[in-house]
Design a protein around this nucleic acid. Structure first.
Lengths: 148, 148
DNA sequence: TAAAGTTGGTATTTATAAATATCAACTTTT
DNA sequence: AAAAGTTGATATTTATAAATACCAACTTTA
């Protein structure tokens, strides 16, 4: 099995994830309620976290604790990601899509989404998986604009 | 005289600006020290604020007080602005320029800047003047990418 | 010349975000 | 059957960002 695939596999129950991150179970649920993360949910509603989830949450915690960016600040930064240029959704749907229009929440948390995107599982989307910090988002914008 | 020109004219001394904004003089200096604003400085080092500065600062205060985004969060959001696509600086200079590379401060506050941009007065630059919030920055990215 | 400005510093207050800790009623896991 | 999970509250603690208020020594404005 490829390392990357293993990386994304939901394996850690919430208590284990909390221990790995050295935070409380409640804090993990809080991040989720805020729309920062999307842990895998079993049919029984139990959460499972992947290694990639742990990395992403460590990144969020660094933003909060080291960079002193508030949760609402992180949400606003995530909202800057040009998701439509990643998933290449139908142009005619974009003006109904909060991922395209909104600038206060990550696309995967934005409500009222009517674009083609809704049919997908956000957790498995590369926008969610691969753009977890300011650096990678700005890098995407930089690279994309350089092809102009 | 055109309204827009008048809008950018530095006319209010710091105490007047503070009164207009209903904040303290010290807070205004703090925003400046953080790199959020660039008031006009007379040869005598005295600050003067324009109507446009007041609007920008009101926008910053809304981000802090209503949107609950911390100052470091605002700085990170400003840093997402693709300034190089606005001023069309020489491509060969961009890899030395923190406005292009950095993702924690607004371009006008980023140190070690060696691009063509340094020769300009940031305060008079459209990047500083016209992109003071998440919405206008994301809109710029959206519009620019749509020409791909 | 009095009032308002400057830089640079420190100290304190205030507000609140972030995190933890509860609780109840219930379901799933092992 | 015990341990761990769920949702959905509320309440409290802790940490710290944001803002205010000082200080000194000095310059500029009006």
């Amino acid at each position: 099995m490829l390392y990357e695939v293993k990386n994304y596999e939901p394996v850690y129950p919430i208590r284990t994830a909390a221990k790995l991150l050295n935070i409380s179970v409640h804090t993990l649920r809080m991040y989720e309620k805020e729309g920062l993360i999307l842990p895998f949910k079993k049919s029984t509603h139990h959460r499972l976290y992947s290694k990639s989830d742990i990395d992403k949450i460590n990144c969020i915690r660094a933003a909060i604790n080291e960079s002193k960016i508030s949760i609402n600040g992180i949400k606003a930064i995530y909202s800057m990601m040009p998701c439509w240029e990643v998933i290449h959704c139908p142009i005619e749907n974009r003006n109904k899509c909060n991922g395209f229009l909104n600038h206060s929440e990550p696309c995967w948390a934005a409500k009222g989404n009517e674009s083609a995107c809704t049919s997908n599982e956000c957790r498995n989307c590369t926008v969610y998986k691969d753009y977890g910090d300011c650096g990678s988002i700005k890098n995407f914008i930089r690279t994309k604009l350089s092809s102009l």
